[in-house]
Simulated scan of single mutants.
Amino acid sequence: MERIVDIGTEGLHLAMHRGFLTVSKDRDEVGRIALDDVHAVILHAHGCTWTGNLVAALAERGSPIVFCNTHHSPVAVTLPIAGFHAQGGRMRAQWDAGKPLAKQLWQRIVRAKITMQGALLAQRATPEASAFALLARRVRSGDPDNLEAQAARRYWPALMGRDFRRDRDAAGANALLNYGYAVLRATVARAIVAAGLHPTIGIFHVNRGNAFALADDLVEPFRPLVDALVVALVAQGVETLDPAVKRRFARLIAFDVKVGGEMSPVSVAAQRLAQSLARSFETTRSELALFDPPTAADWAMLARPLDPTGEA
């Protein structure tokens, strides 16, 4: 089973030994995990050290290391240079993709995100939910009307309360959102590289300083899964990250969603989405494999309270 390894304690040393990622403190080993089981490593503690052969071994397996700032937002990610056997051809097709195709792909992504937001609000019996289906249908190629932003202005007050403001540098619920998004961003970035695509070449996000623009594009429909968990945690009085809460977020990659009539974990759904994007570039047709919104029962699973052991 793939696992998210979160490092939040200062003074730890990460290394590789006989196929394992080992964690030591003051030269004493305090934990280990098989490298083949590592989905991603998330580093929050800036006083940690690691070995170069560990970074290389994780890269060979396509497992990213995500470096976060004090607000749990990603600031750097390590990923392999090569992996997919047809990587050169796919990257060429990605680079050569015309604006019409990119706009069609972004239209599909924005529609999926707004539909997910509406589904979450509907599950919470929020009156504003009914407007989101209409907003999703109105999204045109390239989203020239910026309906994504219009939906966001309605979404956050409806979901988190009128006083809430999405601020990546704030604590509380915002820090929880940052951490959850970091987990899913790492999952999507891993899937992108495994599909033979370059994470810097985005569909919509094109900031020169963003080395993972494509990951920021494809992660959009997944974000409401994090939002649902954060709302549930805040309702339970949780507003700070501790090991139990981090485990809840890490298990998001195993949460099942329906893609093409089949149930798949989020990690697999990300892979299918990235592979379908690669095919879209190769065929010059928008053929994204997007997942369906969860059922009411599935949304409720995300909201289950923590028990004393930190399990859902």
Rank of each mutant, 00 (worst) to 15 (best):
74 P>S: 02
287 E>H: 14
218 L>W: 09
265 P>W: 09
89 G>Q: 06
90 R>I: 05
149 A>T: 15
297 A>Q: 14
222 F>G: 00
242 D>G: 15
82 A>R: 11
257 V>F: 04
131 A>R: 15
74 P>C: 04
221 P>D: 02
205 H>D: 02
179 Y>A: 09
307 D>F: 06
50 W>K: 07
3 R>S: 13
205 H>Y: 07
32 R>S: 08
294 P>M: 01
220 E>M: 00
31 G>P: 03
67 F>G: 03
257 V>Q: 01
145 D>F: 08
166 R>G: 09
6 D>K: 00
21 L>P: 06
170 A>N: 08
289 A>L: 02
147 L>Q: 07
204 F>Y: 15
63 S>I: 02
192 I>G: 07
266 V>M: 10
262 E>Q: 14
89 G>W: 03
44 H>L: 14
63 S>E: 03
48 C>E: 07
166 R>K: 11
202 G>V: 13
301 M>R: 15
120 L>G: 03
246 K>S: 03
74 P>T: 02
149 A>R: 15
153 R>Y: 13
61 R>C: 12
267 S>Y: 11
20 F>Y: 10
205 H>E: 04
225 L>R: 07
278 A>F: 03
29 E>K: 04
136 A>R: 02
26 D>I: 01
88 G>R: 07
299 W>V: 05
9 T>W: 11
54 L>R: 06
94 Q>V: 10
81 I>V: 05
250 A>P: 06
127 P>N: 01
23 V>R: 06
247 R>K: 09
153 R>H: 15
83 G>T: 03
268 V>H: 05
120 L>Q: 09
192 I>N: 05
12 L>C: 09
133 A>G: 13
234 V>Y: 03
250 A>Q: 06
197 L>Y: 01
171 A>R: 13
93 A>V: 04
75 V>D: 10
118 G>Q: 04
49 T>A: 13
71 H>L: 08
19 G>P: 01
288 L>W: 07
164 F>S: 08
199 P>M: 01
287 E>W: 12
123 Q>C: 09
281 F>N: 06
264 S>H: 12
186 A>D: 06
222 F>I: 00
173 A>N: 07
100 P>F: 03
203 I>P: 11
36 D>G: 10
250 A>Y: 04
191 A>Q: 12
223 R>P: 06
27 R>V: 09
83 G>R: 09
299 W>Y: 07
116 M>Y: 06
180 G>I: 04
236 Q>T: 00
309 T>R: 10
9 T>G: 06
166 R>H: 13
13 H>T: 09
184 L>I: 05
237 G>W: 11
34 A>W: 07
94 Q>H: 08
44 H>C: 13
37 D>M: 10
222 F>S: 00
99 K>M: 14
219 V>C: 01
89 G>S: 04
121 L>Q: 00
111 R>M: 13
282 E>S: 12
277 L>E: 11
257 V>W: 02
233 L>T: 00
129 A>N: 02
80 P>I: 11
75 V>H: 10
191 A>C: 14
12 L>Y: 14
140 R>Q: 12
8 G>S: 14
124 R>N: 08
1 M>K: 04
289 A>Y: 06
28 D>T: 12
95 W>Q: 14
303 A>N: 03
289 A>P: 04
121 L>H: 03
87 Q>W: 01
296 A>H: 07
239 E>Q: 13
117 Q>S: 05
78 T>R: 03
11 G>C: 11
82 A>V: 07
49 T>F: 08
62 G>F: 04
140 R>A: 15
145 D>T: 04
273 L>K: 07
119 A>H: 01
